[in-house]
Amino acid sequence: MAGPPQPACLWGNLASFAADMRKMINAPELSDVKFIVGKERRVVYAHRCILAYRCEAFNAMFAQQPLSCDAKDVDIPFVLSDVQPDIFLAVIEFLYTNCVMLSSKMALDVLTSAVEYGLDDLQKLCVDYISSTLTVESACEALQAAVTYRQTDMKDKCLAFIQSHTKSIVKTQGFHELSDPALLVILQSDLLTIDEPDLINFVREWAHVNSVDKIAEVWKFHALKKPSGIAIHLLRRRKGTRPRDHHKYLNLYHK
């Protein structure tokens, strides 16, 4: 004889639930915590229980200022001067609804906040959005973020985009503002679609902008006559480099 039916978890309308939760974002009614955000000192209202259970960073923040029965304590705000209000509200939106509205202008900043607050799911949403909306102007800034926050998948997608659009990307402000480690990621690629002498000139411009006097540390010219002790990838002619007579000195196997 069959036993009793097993319990089942049934889901209601998730979109409707998220819409109802969104109504609570920055709503003064029934809120028990407020933040003073950004240089604009914008007031943002929230609910401790939601933030604390959804985010360990907020839980630790509230533990330093426990909520008492005194109504005056509710009016003591947390001051967050280093984050823009719109970015902070995007984080709050995710904590309340598990979704977030992103744009190309704010996605990198939201990713930064997601890293700071330890929100792995929000990081993934930001990485997916940034990786799928790369442009010539944004690619280097995105690569810089990927290197800084150790986002391997995002780094690989940024590099693939840069490889396909090298000639345009090396002219952007983002390229000139790359850090040493981020630039090294690009220079290690053999698939850059740009002629080698042109790339050297743009790297020189980068060095001038960044006042870097150790350009040799991030740049190795590929046409070396003595391969002994040299990393293999330095002996290959890049994809975009036009053939030249001195390439005969490269290891023939790697031509």
Rank of each mutant, 00 (worst) to 15 (best):
Met1Gly: 15
Ala2Gly: 11
Gly3Val: 09
Pro7Gly: 01
Ala8Lys: 14
Ala8Arg: 14
Leu10Gln: 12
Gly12Gln: 06
Asn13Ile: 02
Leu14Lys: 09
Ala15Asn: 12
Asp20Met: 11
Met21His: 01
Arg22Tyr: 06
Met24Asp: 08
Ile25Cys: 09
Ile25Met: 04
Leu30Gln: 09
Ile36Ser: 04
Glu40Asp: 13
Val43Leu: 02
Val43Asp: 04
Ala46Ile: 09
Arg48Lys: 12
Leu51Ile: 08
Ala60Thr: 14
Phe62Ser: 01
Gln65Met: 13
Pro66Val: 01
Ala71Asn: 12
Asp75Val: 01
Ile76Pro: 00
Pro77Asn: 06
Ser81Glu: 14
Gln84Ser: 07
Phe88Asp: 04
Ala90Thr: 01
Val91Cys: 11
Val91Lys: 08
Phe94Asp: 12
Thr97Leu: 05
Asn98Ala: 15
Asn98Gly: 07
Leu102Pro: 03
Ser104Ala: 12
Ser104Asn: 14
Asp109Trp: 00
Leu111Pro: 06
Leu111Val: 05
Val115His: 12
Asp121Ala: 05
Lys124Met: 15
Tyr129Leu: 03
Ser131Cys: 12
Thr133Glu: 14
Leu134Asp: 03
Thr135Ile: 05
Ser138Leu: 08
Ala139Val: 00
Cys140Leu: 09
Gln144Asp: 04
Val147Asp: 04
Val147Ser: 01
Asp156His: 14
Cys158Asp: 02
Cys158Arg: 02
Leu159Gly: 07
Ala160Phe: 10
Ala160Leu: 15
Gln163His: 13
Thr166Phe: 07
Thr166Lys: 03
Gln173Arg: 14
Gly174Pro: 01
Gly174His: 03
Ser179Gly: 13
Ser179Phe: 07
Ala182Trp: 06
Ala182Arg: 08
Val185Met: 09
Ile186Cys: 14
Leu192Ile: 15
Leu192His: 10
Ile194Val: 10
Ile194Leu: 07
Glu196Gly: 06
Pro197Phe: 03
Leu199Ser: 10
Phe202Ser: 11
Phe202Glu: 15
Ala207Pro: 05
Val209His: 11
Lys214Pro: 00
Ile215Gly: 02
Ile215Tyr: 00
Phe221Ala: 12
Ala223Tyr: 09
Lys226Glu: 15
Ser228Ile: 07
Ile232Val: 12
Ile232Arg: 11
Leu234Asp: 09
Leu235Gln: 14
Lys239Cys: 09
Lys239Tyr: 14
Pro243Val: 09
Pro243Gln: 09
Arg244Tyr: 02
Asp245Ile: 05
His247Pro: 09
Lys248Cys: 02
Tyr253Lys: 14
His254Pro: 06
His254Ala: 07
